[in-house]
Amino acid sequence: MNEQTTDQKIVVITGASSGIGRGAAIEIAARGMGVVITYNARPAGAEETVAVIRDSGGTAVALPLDIGRSETFPDFADALTGVLRREWNAERIHGLVNNAGFGGGMAFEEMTEDAFDEYYRVLLRGPYFLTQALLPLIEDGGAIVNTSSSAARPGETEPGYSGYAAMKGGLVVASRFLAKELSGRAIRVNSIAPGPTRTRLGDNAFERFPQVIDGIAAKTAFGRLGEPADVGKVIAFLVSDDSAWITGQDIQASGGYAL
């Protein structure tokens, strides 16, 4: 137990073994908050995230979580409660970042019910019910950030993303309504819509198909892909007290993609 950090704010970030989740975890820790990161298929990546944070003087712990299996959420909440007490002598978390998910499109003609259900379980039902499961642990005045996508916003309509964007759009709407429902406890709920960002999504698509990068970058105002830290800094802002007057918003962090 670390008796030095009992007043430290703690944030849970799902899917932080790489990409935007890792970027968010690093940026949140750099602002003096403790982080609990979750992973599913990449425990080694999660430990790398923890090591980067600890090497920089921050505090971090990794826990396994499959966001697509909501029946495991009560056990995860119990595991989180134990970690909070052991590592920080704490009973509550300040924030929750629902970031875990997967990318990649599928043409409407090829969409199957199983594939559609997987989008639903991981991208919408999972974040929604994980928030419900962890709500008793979130302190009054805390913050929830849901990672949506610029694909769910007007102005970007690419073929093959009807299933993916529908779930991300549903998450945006749920975030807005939860901002109203949880306002009595002064818990802020926002979503963040990243544009094309250099992550491992789509089976590491940018590394496998580097030829597509220039065309995508040309669609941004700044002429480049986003980096995990670009989005991570915005997420860190949204869980910090600096954004205490922002709730119910979907904030695009895309470098002006598809302006």
Score class of each variant (00 low, 15 high):
49 T>M: 07
34 G>D: 10
34 G>A: 13
54 R>G: 00
102 F>L: 03
238 L>K: 08
71 E>H: 12
117 D>C: 10
232 G>M: 10
85 R>S: 15
82 G>L: 15
223 G>P: 09
112 T>C: 06
257 Y>I: 03
250 D>S: 15
105 G>I: 06
244 A>G: 04
137 L>G: 04
44 A>R: 10
166 A>V: 02
140 D>K: 12
94 H>N: 14
185 R>V: 12
4 Q>R: 12
252 Q>R: 15
62 A>I: 09
225 L>I: 04
65 L>P: 02
18 S>W: 10
158 E>N: 06
83 V>W: 15
258 A>R: 14
126 G>E: 04
144 I>V: 05
167 M>H: 07
97 V>K: 11
74 P>L: 12
235 I>T: 02
118 E>C: 05
239 V>L: 11
258 A>F: 07
6 T>D: 02
199 T>A: 07
149 S>F: 01
45 G>Q: 03
194 P>G: 03
221 A>R: 10
153 R>I: 01
92 R>M: 14
259 L>D: 11
18 S>F: 09
177 F>R: 14
153 R>D: 00
108 F>Q: 09
159 P>T: 03
195 G>D: 03
253 A>L: 13
59 T>Q: 05
36 V>L: 15
194 P>D: 02
116 F>G: 06
117 D>V: 11
152 A>L: 04
27 E>C: 13
211 Q>F: 07
254 S>P: 06
18 S>V: 08
36 V>S: 10
124 L>A: 04
238 L>W: 08
46 A>K: 08
116 F>H: 07
43 P>D: 03
150 S>E: 00
244 A>W: 11
232 G>E: 05
148 S>E: 00
226 G>D: 08
14 T>P: 11
8 Q>G: 05
120 Y>L: 09
228 P>H: 04
200 R>S: 08
121 R>Y: 07
227 E>V: 07
64 P>R: 11
32 G>K: 10
42 R>N: 14
101 G>W: 01
50 V>L: 01
133 A>G: 11
6 T>K: 15
230 D>V: 03
146 N>M: 00
236 A>G: 10
195 G>E: 03
165 A>D: 06
177 F>W: 12
163 G>S: 15
106 M>N: 08
17 S>C: 09
215 G>L: 04
222 F>D: 09
